[in-house]
Design a protein around this nucleic acid. Structure first.
Length: 429
RNA sequence: GUGGGCGUAGCUCAAUUGGCGGAGCACUUGGUUGUGGUCCAAGGGGUUGUGGGUUCAAGUCCCAUCGUCCACCCCA
């Protein structure tokens, strides 16, 4: 085995690729319906964009980026997430000159140097949507609704949306002071990492799974109770909007996002059946990000979802309700000999106006070609042997009924069409 | 980055205290001069992930390495 794919990457092989396309096309239809337009940005950016946009203290930036120097020594990084590049492109192309809300979506690969695990890869695909240009809570509601609808349209039930408000930098700073003070007095009850977090990034203590820390967490003041009036009102409006729309959600006052740029609304959508990596996606409002990237103050909200995890969830859901994709009608052309193979190519081109047609160019014996037709779930075989070539004919065989008859080349198309029409009316397989 | 499970035929998996590496499916051929999905028969396939070590003898034990899976961490 001379080469193998890099760790944490995948080869997507034909049957899976079909599923991939089905799912992403459904997502695109939904995004389209909500008025979001696709944006494509480079796979790599200047490293500094992510350091500033995602946050220097985050795990993503501090230990998960694929960073390299280009030939002139500039530091470049394979994008670990999609929002910072969108913001960069928005500013660079001056899209803000146009008034109103800008709705953009992306769909592409992201790169993080993580240890691979169920539903976690080093190269993974994300779909994300960003609504830029309005601070109104209804925009947050729309984003959450869009994400839920997009997943719901794929046949996923039992989705759990969790929401929280992480406040704006002002009330968050005040809260972090209170939190630090509280953590200081609880210091003895914390694990080592949390003692570290208490100083560097106190909000992260809420994520700790250590039983002792969890007990402490119960006693800590909640960010929810420290929000300023504006943030509190914003959050209440988001809740009211979701209720009006009938979008089911639960409050999770401990929900914190891993990226620094979030303000106010933060949300996640889980598919509980997936286990440890059950988060299909998450997002929130990021009113401070544009300034962090050197642009004018610009309010925005967005989310992203992991395609691989959505695929696993969709497959699990389809298995559960045993929805098996129907086999399509197909034509198999089985030629014997050089002249017949050339003629087969001509016939197949015409047959493709009716249904997908494959010419067996393996050079195998007829028996093997017939097996190939069966394996490919073909409905019809067009057989071209020496006898038929001599008469300018081809045998058309209905694999379902076992009936076959010879037709002049010009009449083959009509004969095949008649067989496939009965297939469309009757039951399959 | 931390902890644990697993790498044997194309696929799914066996192989007793360390003792001649097998089965099912798949593939090829024949039964059918040129006919699939069922059936019968025969056949081809492997440096047991890789590299070391222990041993008369290693798929099996030890070390390293790569890959993979699960959990932590983090996140999508």
């Amino acid at each position: 085995m001379p080469f193998q794919r890099p760790r944490g990457t995948q080869d997507l092989l034909p049957p899976a690729a079909v599923q991939w396309r089905r799912v992403t096309e459904s997502m695109r239809r939904c995004l389209d319906a909500y008025g979001y337009g696709e944006i494509r940005t480079p796979l790599f950016e200047e490293t500094e964009l992510f350091v500033r946009g995602v946050g220097a203290g985050t795990d993503i930036v501090s230990k998960e980026m694929y960073t390299f120097a280009d030939r002139k020594g500039r530091s470049m990084t394979l994008r670990p997430e999609g929002t910072a590049p969108v913001v960069r492109a928005f500013l660079e192309n001056n899209l803000g000159a146009e008034p109103g809300v800008h709705r953009l979506y992306y769909l592409g690969s992201m790169y993080r140097y993580d240890r691979p695990q169920a539903g976690r890869y080093r190269e993974f695909f994300q779909v994300g949507a960003e609504a830029i240009g309005s601070p109104l809570p209804e925009l947050d509601v729309e984003a959450i609704d869009l994400m839920m609808t997009m997943l719901h349209d794929l046949g996923l039930e039992d989705l759990a949306a969790e929401i929280n408000s992480v406040g704006h930098p002002g009330c968050r700073a005040a809260y972090e002071e209170r939190l630090r003070a509280a953590l200081e007095s609880e210091r003895d009850g914390l694990c080592d990492t949390c003692r570290e977090r208490a100083l560097t990034n106190p909000l992260r203590v809420f994520d700790c799974k250590n039983p002792a820390c969890r007990a402490v967490v119960e006693r800590l003041p909640l960010l929810r109770d420290s929000l300023c009036d504006e943030c509190r009102a914003h959050h209440a409006s988001v809740r009211a909007g979701l209720e009006t729309l009938g979008v089911p959600f639960t409050e999770n006052p401990r929900l914190v996002r891993g990226l620094d740029y979030y303000t106010r609304t933060a949300f996640e959508v889980h598919y509980p059946a997936l286990g440890a990596q059950s988060a299909l996606g998450g997002g929130g409002r990021y009113d401070g990000l544009f300034e962090a990237c050197g642009g004018p103050p610009t309010p925005a909200v967005g989310f992203s979802a992991g395609i691989e995890r959505v695929l696993v969830a969709v497959e699990a859901a389809e298995r559960a309700r045993d929805a098996v994709p129907a086999a399509g009608a197909a034509i198999w052309v089985a030629p014997l000999g050089d002249a017949a193979r050339r003629r087969a190519l001509v016939l197949a081109r015409a047959l493709r106006t009716v249904a997908p047609a494959t010419v067996d160019l393996s050079g195998r014996a007829l028996k093997a070609q017939m097996r190939g037709a069966d394996r490919a779930r073909a409905r019809v075989v067009v057989l071209l042997g020496d006898d038929e070539m001599g008469r300018g004919e081809a045998l058309v065989r209905d694999l379902q009924s076992g009936e076959q008859a010879a037709y002049a080349w010009a009449d083959v198309l009509g004969a095949v069409r008649r067989i496939l029409e009965t297939a469309g009316a009757g039951a399959g397989a």
